[in-house]
């Protein structure tokens, strides 16, 4: 393990994992409590169109993915505000069309020889230092925004109608949230790839929700869990020479099932207690 840390790419990978985890914990929490997991998935997959576009036009990868992610997030926000009941269908369309555009654009790109798998399943071991700075910037921006609007985000997520009545700028915050989701997704694609984005965005908050009493605590615990999963996954992938993104997700999944099992066993205990004391039947 220690000799691995001597390698720069391993240190970068760990740094990237921690940065992504912190942002994932914060944004993933808001995604889960606002029930927009599917939207986040749509944005992630549509980002593939951005990868295709970037290669086709000869732009840097980040420009294409960020642009397309923000664009698809904007379309989804507009649909949500205009016709909420049509959102899932629309997300499905954007999801598929984005990927299709990506594939076709890569077909049309002359001399294309990019490692496609690295975008689908992540390439955390190939994160350059410049990307780390980008991630740190996004991370600081996200944390600053969420801290600034914390109570408003809390009110919106819990009861948007009441929030509106209290003059919370719900529409603005919702668009802001989708924008941050788009940036986060671009960041996570680096680590676990676009196919596995939803897992890293949702599993830690989903576990954390059960053990925390406030949105803030849920964000912190999600970030910690996410760190734990990412670092453990990286270490296992290094030990057994496995694809890092998939290994990280499997570690998270193991954590998820452990917590689900714990949750399944816990209510039975309390149910037994109440059956003994209250329920005569």
């Amino acid at each position: 393990m220690w000799e691995a840390l001597q390698l720069e790419f391993v240190r970068n990978a760990l740094m990237a994992g921690v940065l992504v985890s912190v942002v994932c914990g914060v944004i993933g929490t808001l995604v889960v409590v606002n029930r927009i997991v599917f939207l986040a998935g749509g944005i992630a997959h549509a980002a593939y169109g951005g990868i295709g576009l970037a290669f086709f036009m000869g732009w840097p990868y980040a420009v294409g993915t960020t642009g397309v992610s923000i664009l698809s997030a904007g379309v989804m926000a507009a649909v949500t505000l205009k016709a909420r009941h049509r959102v899932d269908a629309m997300v499905g369309v954007i999801w598929a069309v984005g990927m299709a555009i990506g594939v076709v654009l890569l077909d049309l790109t002359p001399g294309y020889n990019v490692d496609l798998m690295s975008y689908l399943f992540g390439s955390i071991l190939a994160v350059p230092v410049s990307d780390l700075w980008q991630m740190a910037a996004i991370g600081i921006a996200v944390i600053a925004i969420v801290t600034y609007y914390y109570n408003d985000f809390l009110a919106m997520s819990y009861d948007d109608e009441f929030a509106r009545l209290r003059n919370v700028p719900v529409t603005f915050l919702y668009c802001l949230l989708l924008g941050m989701v788009a940036l986060t997704v671009v960041m996570i694609i680096r680590v676990v790839g676009l196919i596995l984005v939803i897992a890293l965005l949702t599993i830690p908050p989903f576990i954390a929700e059960k053990f925390t009493g406030s949105l803030r605590a849920m964000m912190v615990l999600s970030s910690i869990l996410s760190c734990l999963f990412t670092i453990t996954g990286l270490w296992l992938s290094y030990l057994f020479n496995l694809t890092s993104g998939a290994t990280i997700i499997l570690v998270a999944a193991a954590g998820f099932f452990t917590s689900a099992l714990w949750d399944y066993l816990k209510p039975r205990r309390s149910a037994d207690q109440s059956a003994g004391t209250v329920n005569p039947a």
Binding site: N151, D152, F162, A163, R166, N167, V168, P169
Partner: peptide
């Protein structure tokens, strides 16, 4: 406390 939120 959500009831005490003031205009954004």
């Amino acid at each position: 406390l959500m009831g005490r939120l003031r205009t954004g």
